[in-house]
Write a protein that binds this DNA or RNA. Structure first.
Length: 598
RNA sequence: GCGCCGUUGGUCCAGUGGUAGGACAUUAGCUUCCCAAGCUAAUAGCCCGGGUUCAAUUCCCGGACGGCGCACCA
């Protein structure tokens, strides 16, 4: 519940802000500042680690501009536009196709041309649902949600910015399958921008015209391929099934992935598997699981090709927002491209046992058919082949007669057809894989982790705002300060340590401006998990030089030798529980600061 | 796209028909051995276009951007 303060912090501290402010701003576009870009990249890296590397999947990077035929095949060109009609009286815009569908028995008015829709509005006396004024005579305008462009000079080759990153994966499937050696199941991922020319962008990062998606297309043979469900069977999930949403007293279903799949609440085991993987991943990057749920699509909102569909939703500012979708898309996408494109979008599925089939074939003697039938010879040969398949017995006679496309019939000696029954061994068949699609909105995840990390507490009686970000995704790993800036020994050592830690691959902030408390607060506000402070005590005491390491959440401190610093920090920042601040406190001296976080 | 409301330093706000003030932040200096301390100074702003007016940041119209509601979200 920190909506406005969070937006203010995001702007002030460089997480994100509306783009092109110098030119008045552009709705629907956001720029990630230095902190936001780092945070977003860390989220993407965490996603890549879990959904690409840990799953053994293949990541690709396809262009954002794709030619028109791609979207003719995908259905986006026809299906992705809205027909709008504006009321001349009250000015409210309506979906023209919806008005038609309500007033007539036409089911898919979306596919009608605009001119016809205008006639239908006139013929059926359709009026504005808002004010009742007849809409006859108003223009129906197409509004396609894809950004269009031209590829090369002129307008000979129209192109569009992809409205989802997935199309790049589907289009390149014929080649990608070769890299997977043609073996199902395999998964292909892509992280990158997608574009939709939204009518009305709203809500900060929530609905943008350019946004980043991380998508996984898991290609499977639904008959043979099962997910490794046991890996996530015990993962607890909070489900909000369609039935519960429709019931008056519907409630969440707290269960495990294994049980939900076994009970059929989750229809697809593959979808269930990825819900479990996603649940653990969201937890890892710091989503508050008390403000998280999986919501099943209602029958009405499901895309027509999706068998079962669940959304991951998080609560931000009191609203539930969709942050990922998990859909069983069946063979929809690959079938479309298989039908439209030249290449084959199938994989070869080997049978367990080769099948032996007897096939009737002909091998017509064209040196006879040619002279006899002239230009029709080819058609005669084709008709013979078709007949052999349909009615092999016809070739038992002396002559055989076939019908030609132009209603003529042709009779030839059976010998000429060279009819035979051949035995063939079939080792498999070409199938179009089914697709399970987990699709993540990166910007929405960034917004979620920021909102869930936003915390206000009290330190030393002063209110403090900080981001309780997971170290893995925090934009800065560690900040290094001299405790005071009027002692060159401290300043120089802080400089040296910062450089050394950067050499170890850490993202390091260096700050010697203002009091130490002020510098801690700056880092707290951007979620830096650890601060290293160089003080005189660490240089003057017995033994090797040491510095203090402060953790963000409770402001506890421990004194660590400079020589061990890089190694200890790397362990603290590594993913998983490789090391915790508690273990540091056990092994080194803690620092009394009289500071109390409450 | 529609309706209502809004837009003043980096951020949050005050204010005015005669071109503006605060708080916080930032920078520099002094001070400072652990949590937004203090002192001094500096940087920095009326969203854009048109109209009314001697004069517009202020009033009017339009636009852009933002918030809320409607519509939309394949």
């Amino acid at each position: 519940m920190a909506g406005e303060q969070l937006i203010e912090l995001a702007k002030r501290r460089g997480f994100f802000f509306g783009s092109n402010g110098a030119y008045g701003g552009t709705a629907g576009f956001y720029t990630f500042g230095p902190r936001g870009a780092a945070l977003k990249r860390n989220v993407e890296d965490a996603w890549r680690d879990r959904f690409t590397l840990k799953e053994g999947n293949h990541e690709i990077e396809a262009p954002t501009v794709m030619p028109e035929p791609v979207f003719e095949a995908s259905g986006h060109l026809d299906g992705f536009d809205d027909m709008l009609v504006e009321c001349g009286e009250c000015g409210v815009s309506h979906r023209a196709d919806h008005l038609i569908e309500d007033a007539t028995s036409i089911a898919d008015a979306e596919t009608l041309p605009g001119s016809e829709v205008e006639l239908l509005i006139r013929d059926h006396d359709i009026a504005c649902p808002n004010c009742g004024t007849p809409l006859a005579g108003q223009d129906v305008e197409d509004f396609n949600l894809m950004f269009s462009t031209n590829i090369g000079p002129g307008d000979a080759q129209p192109g569009y910015l992809r409205p989802e990153t997935a199309q790049g994966i589907f289009v390149e499937f014929p080649r990608i399958k070769a890299y997977a050696r043609g073996q199902l199941p395999f998964g292909v991922t892509q992280i990158g921008p997608a574009y939709r020319n939204e009518i009305s962008p709203r809500g900060g990062l929530l609905r943008l015209r350019e946004f980043t998606q991380a998508e996984l297309e898991q290609f499977i043979d639904p008959e043979d391929d099962d997910p490794p469900l046991d890996r996530v069977a015990d993962v607890d999930v909070r489900l909000y099934p369609a039935a519960a949403q429709e019931a008056d007293d519907g409630d969440y279903l707290d269960t495990t992935v294994g049980e939900a799949v076994a009970d059929g609440v989750i229809g697809s085991a593959w979808v269930g598997y990825y819900l479990g993987v996603a649940q653990e991943w969201y937890e890892r990057i710091g989503v508050d699981m008390g403000r998280f749920r999986f919501r099943q699509h209602l029958p009405g909102e499901r895309a027509h090709y999706a068998a079962d569909c669940w959304d991951a939703e998080s609560e931000v500012g009191g609203d539930w927002i969709e942050i990922a979708g998990f859909a069983d898309r069946g063979t929809y996408d690959l079938s479309k491209h298989d039908a439209h494109a030249d290449d084959s979008f199938t994989v070869f599925k080997r049978y367990d046992e080769p099948k032996t089939v007897e096939r009737a074939t002909v091998d017509p003697d064209m040196s006879v058919l040619g002279p006899e039938f002239g230009g029709d010879a080819g058609a005669v040969a084709e008709a013979l082949e078709a007949l052999a398949e349909r009615d092999p017995d016809a070739f038992d006679a002396e002559t055989v007669t076939v019908d030609l496309p132009d209603d003529d019939a042709a009779t030839v000696d059976t010998d000429v057809a060279n009819f035979s029954i051949e035995t063939e061994t079939e080792t498999g068949e070409h199938i179009i894989p089914s697709v399970i699609e987990p699709s993540f909105g990166i910007g929405r995840i960034v917004q979620t982790v920021l909102a869930h990390a936003y915390t206000v507490d009290e330190i030393d009686g002063e209110e403090r705002t900080y981001l309780e970000l997971a170290p893995e995704i925090a934009p800065v790993d560690v900040a290094v300060f001299p405790l005071v800036s009027n002692d060159d020994r401290l300043v120089d050592l802080a400089d040296r340590i910062a450089g050394d830690l950067r050499g170890h691959g850490l993202s390091v902030a260096h700050d010697d401006s203002g009091s130490i408390g002020r510098r801690y607060r700056r880092q707290d506000e951007i979620g830096t998990p650890f601060c290293v402070t160089v003080d005189r005590d660490g240089l003057e005491g017995e033994g090797p030089d040491s510095v203090t390491v402060r953790e963000r959440d409770a402001a506890r401190q421990v004194r660590v030798p400079v020589d061990a610093l890089a190694e200890e920090l790397a362990a603290l920042l590594g993913d998983g529980d490789a090391a915790s601040f508690e273990t540091l406190l056990e092994r080194y001296d803690s620092v009394e600061t009289d500071v109390e976080a409450a």
